[in-house]
C-alpha cells in the first residue's frame, strides 16, 4: 500500500497529525449522519419492511410475504386508477404552472426592478399560513352560494353553481399551492441568462420570438427543469387538495395510502403502496435528470 510506504518515511508525530486530520471529517459529520440514519433512513426501512409483512399485522417482518404486492397487482384491484389520477394531476399541474409562472418569473428577473422584492414577498406570504386553512378559504370561495357563486348571483342574477368536488378544482388547488416552488427556480434560471447574449441575438437579426426560442428558453431551462421536478414530486405526494377541494370525487394514491394506514388499519398494504409510489416517482425523476444534462445546457462542458 502506498499509504503504508508514505507513513514509514514520516516521523511519528506527523503520522498522528495526518490520522487526526483524516478522522476530523467523518467525526464532525457524525451527528448529522446519526440524525439522517434515525430520522430518515430508519422510517424508510421500516416502511420497506412493513410492505413485506403479513396484511393487517403490526409485527414487522414476522412472516415475510409478497401478499401486499399481489393484492395491488391483482387485476381486480382498481388502486392503479389512483396512481394514474395522481400522476395525471401532477403532470397537468406542472404544465399549467410552467405556463403561468414563466411570465411572472420573466418580470421578476428582468422587468420589475426594485419592485421585484415586494412581489416576491407577496408570493411567499401565503406560505406562512397552513395549507389546509388556505384550502378551506378556497372552499368558501367556490362553494355553492359562496363568495364567487353568491357574488355573481346578487350582482347579475345568475350563478355558476358548485365548482367544488371536480378533478379540475383539484388541479387548481395544486397549481395554487405549489406556484412558489415553480416560480422561484424559474426566476433564478431566467436571471442567469446574460443580458448581452439577448442583445447580441437581437443585433444578429433575431425577432423577439426567436430570441425567446433560441436564447432565453434554452439558457433558462435548468431553472425550469428544477421547478418542474420540484412541483411534480410535491403534486404527486399532495393529499389535501383532493380531500378538501375535491371531496371524495377522486381518490388519489396518497389518499389510498392514508386510508390503508388509518381507516383500514392495514399498515403493510399502505407501506407497499408507498414503496411503489416512491419507485415510480424516483424512476421518473431520474430518467428526466439523466436525459437532461444540466452542465451541457449551461455550457460548462
Amino acid at each position: 500500500m502506498t499509504t503504508a510506504d508514505a507513513s514509514e518515511a514520516l516521523p511519528p508525530r506527523a503520522i498522528a497529525r495526518r490520522r487526526l486530520r483524516l478522522r476530523a471529517g467523518p467525526l464532525l459529520s457524525l451527528p448529522l449522519l446519526l440524525l439522517l440514519a434515525v430520522g430518515f433512513l430508519a422510517p424508510l426501512l421500516a416502511v420497506l419492511g412493513f410492505s413485506f409483512s403479513e396484511p393487517r399485522s403490526f409485527a414487522l417482518l414476522a412472516h415475510p410475504t409478497l401478499e401486499n404486492y399481489e393484492t395491488i397487482f391483482d387485476p381486480a384491484n382498481t388502486v392503479y386508477m389512483s396512481f394514474l389520477w395522481s400522476l395525471w394531476f401532477a403532470f397537468l399541474s406542472v404544465c399549467i404552472l410552467a405556463v403561468v409562472s414563466y411570465p411572472v418569473a420573466y418580470g421578476l428577473a428582468k422587468l420589475f426592478g426594485r419592485w421585484a422584492n415586494l412581489i416576491t414577498l407577496l408570493m411567499v406570504f401565503p406560505l406562512f399560513i397552513s395549507e389546509n386553512v388556505r384550502l378551506y378559504g378556497w372552499v368558501l370561495f367556490f362553494i355553492k352560494n359562496g363568495v364567487l357563486d353568491g357574488g355573481l348571483r346578487s350582482l347579475f342574477g345568475f350563478g355558476i353553481g358548485d365548482l367544488l368536488f371536480t378533478p379540475g378544482i383539484i388541479v387548481f388547488g395544486m397549481v395554487y399551492t405549489y406556484l412558489p416552488f415553480m416560480l422561484f427556480p424559474m426566476t433564478l434560471g431566467l436571471s442567469m441568462v446574460p443580458q448581452e447574449a439577448v442583445e447580441a441575438a437581437g443585433d444578429l437579426g433575431a425577432s423577439r420570438l426567436q430570441i425567446f426560442r433560441e436564447v432565453e428558453l434554452p439558457l433558462s431551462l435548468p431553472g425550469i427543469i428544477i421547478g418542474a421536478l420540484l412541483t411534480f414530486v410535491l403534486s404527486v405526494g399532495a393529499i389535501a387538495e383532493s380531500k378538501v377541494l375535491g371531496g371524495q370525487a377522486v381518490i388519489v394514491i396518497t389518499h389510498d395510502i392514508e386510508i390503508a394506514f388509518t381507516y383500514a388499519q392495514n399498515w403493510p398494504l399502505g407501506a407497499a403502496l408507498a414503496v411503489l409510489l416512491m419507485l415510480v416517482v424516483g424512476a421518473l425523476v431520474l430518467t428526466v435528470l439523466r436525459h437532461l444534462d444540466l452542465d451541457r445546457i449551461l455550457g460548462r462542458r
Partner: peptide
C-alpha cells in the same frame, strides 16, 4: 435586429449553449 449593422461586444456575448458552428450560423438561421 432590422439594422444592417452588427456589434462585437466587450464580453463577446457568444451563446454558451451553442457550438462554434451554431454560433456562427445564428444570423443565417434567423
Amino acid at each position: 435586429n432590422r439594422r444592417p449593422t452588427c456589434m462585437v461586444f466587450q464580453s463577446l456575448a457568444l451563446f454558451p449553449h451553442k457550438s462554434v458552428g451554431e454560433n456562427i450560423e445564428f444570423p443565417l438561421k434567423m
